[in-house]
Design a protein around this nucleic acid. Sequence first.
DNA 1: AGACTGACGGTTA
DNA 2: ATAACCGCCAGTC
Length: 98
Amino acid sequence: MDEEYVERVLEIVERIPAGRVTTYGAVAAVVGGGPRQIGTVMAHHGGPVPWWRVIRADGTLPPSHQGEALDRYRDEGTPWDSRGRVRMRDAFWDPGAE
DNA sequence: AGACTGACGGTTA
DNA sequence: ATAACCGCCAGTC
């Protein structure tokens, strides 16, 4: 996994607007590789970027987003549905459809 | 080489 | 709507 790939991933994450989210798969579709890879990249190099705006395709959060991420969503006004999942219908931001 | 693992995702039952 | 399955990509043991 080379640095250039990581850079591209982080670059995209930085472009996610506040209050919106995108998915691992969507990012993978742009930079290449698989969703798992994006996850790995974020786990190791996600610190400096808005990592909480990258979630699963079904709108649920990975275990790692449980703490701080929730506060962030509250601040940014990220739309939630009644069952504690992000309302993808409104919040999804497609990094490939700019 | 083979098995296991992980911030995943789409299909099928 | 839920859960089981299987495919996916790279790293590690």
